[in-house]
Every structure is written in C-alpha cells, then in structure tokens.
C-alpha cells in the first residue's frame, strides 16, 4: 500500500508538459499515434524523426531517458510476435547472419516494432506527466461516456481497499495453516475469490447508499472543470503537427 499503485507511472514535476491540461495531452498523443501508424513503413528515416520529436518532448518534460526506456519494457510480450514474423512469413528470402529470412516478414516485423514502440513511448510520456486523476478529468472533457469515467475512478479509489482485503484474507488462511500447494487447494482459493467478490459487492451497495445520502441522483456532479486555452491547445498540437509534416513528406518521397 503506502504510496499506492495509482502513482507508479506518474513522475512529479513542474515542466510545461506537466502543466498542460490533460485533455490537450490525450488528444495530442492520440493524433500522434494515428499519424505514426499511417506512415509508410519503407520511410525508415521518418520513424527516426518521430523518435527525435518524442525525445524533445521528454527533454522539455525533464523525464530522463532511462525512465522512459525502462517503462518501454512493458511492450515486450506484445512485440514477441513481431520477432517470429521473419521466420514464418512467405515470400522472397534474404540471408541475414547466415539465416534465411523472409523479406516481407522482416518489413512486417520492423513495422510492428517501430510503430508499437513509438506509440508506447508516447503513452509513457503522457502517463508520466499526467496524474491519473487528471487523465480521467481530461477524458471527461473529451466527452468519454460518464459511466466509464465513474467506473474507472471507483477502480482507482477502491483498488487498494480491495487488495488490502485480499491480503487480510490470505493472512487469515495462512494463520490457520493453509498453504496453496497444487490442484487440490484450488477449491479453497476459488472460495476465497468468491467471498472477496461478495464482500466487494456488498461494499458497492454501502457506497451507493452513502452516495444517495449525499444527493447522488445518477450523475456525478461537476467539481473540477479543467478548461484549456487556445495557447495550450496549440502547444500540445506541436507534437502531432510535426509528426504530420514528417508523415506527408514520407508519403511524397516513396
């Protein structure tokens, strides 16, 4: 518990990037990713340019490179498939380091790897400069369905409460000499999971009661209204606009 899982991604700071309203940053990252994805994979230099643009944002936000790189590791399971492509795809073969590899497969792998990495890097920058709470407010401003926002904000609030409850149940099991060893004990674990579900459900009812008692009538009241100025939208747009120029140049040079 302590600091809680809510802040693992966020990195405190007072940079111009931190100061931008969340909705501007979310929109900028989304547009950037769309532009990157629509870039022709043959324009290898363009992906270098995108990486430089992201590095510039990271520098302005004073996020160290090592911090971003370490968080990039999360994409490994997702790009594992890309590594297989040169071996399994059909088509023209080329020899690389004494191995016969498929040329379309190599291009496909490069495509996934480059675009995936850039997308994840942009999201990591977004997450490390924007508090989770602000992200939700930003999504709210961008007209995401309010029910989804409410579900997400309850997840933030009650994640720790429920994992704490789970930890107490585990300690209670262990205190009575239970160790999960093998299939025969799965029944006990399943029953604990069921009990946890019921407890969470009942807590949900109590929380709802508390909300209704304070005047909740189906919609969350607006408490913080983050408005973004034209200047803030423009400075957030710098990243996707730069990327768009690179992308269009890429298409023209093909």
């Amino acid at each position: 518990m302590g600091a809680g899982h809510a802040h693992k991604l966020y990195r405190e700071g007072r940079s111009p990037v931190h100061a931008l309203p969340a909705q501007c940053k979310i929109a900028a990252v989304l547009c950037f990713v769309l532009v990157v994805v629509s870039t022709p994979r043959e324009a290898v230099w363009a992906f270098g340019a995108y990486a430089v643009a992201l590095a510039a944002v990271a520098a302005v936000a004073r996020i160290p490179a090592g911090y971003v790189l370490r968080r990039l590791l999360i994409e490994i399971p997702f790009v594992a498939f890309a590594v297989l492509m040169p071996f399994v795809a059909d088509g023209e073969r080329v020899a690389v380091l004494g191995m016969e590899l498929s040329r379309p497969g190599l291009w496909g792998a490069w495509n996934i790897l480059a675009k995936g990495t850039l997308g994840v890097a942009a999201s990591v920058l977004l997450a490390s400069t924007t508090e989770l709470r602000a992200l939700l407010l930003g999504l709210q401003r961008l007209r995401m369905p309010p029910l989804l926002i409410q579900i997400a904000s309850f997840m933030i609030r009650y994640g720790d409460v429920i994992s704490d409850e789970m930890r107490r149940m585990r300690i209670a099991r262990q205190s009575r000499g239970f160790e999960a060893r093998g299939v025969r004990h799965w029944g006990v674990l399943a029953k604990s999971a069921g009990a946890l579900f019921i407890r969470s459900y009942e807590r949900g009812e109590r929380v709802h009661l508390a909300m209704v008692s304070r005047g909740y009538a189906g919609t969350m009241p607006v408490i913080d209204d983050m408005t973004a100025t034209r200047a803030q939208w423009l400075s957030a747009a710098a990243l996707p606009l730069t990327a768009l120029v690179v992308c269009l140049t890429g298409w023209m040079l093909i």
Partner: peptide
Amino acid sequence: FQDPDDQLFMP
C-alpha cells in the same frame, strides 16, 4: 456511516 471507506468514494 460507520466505515469511512464506504463514505469516502472520490479520488
């Protein structure tokens, strides 16, 4: 209410 975790539901 008795359990403040039920009462405090905002972030």
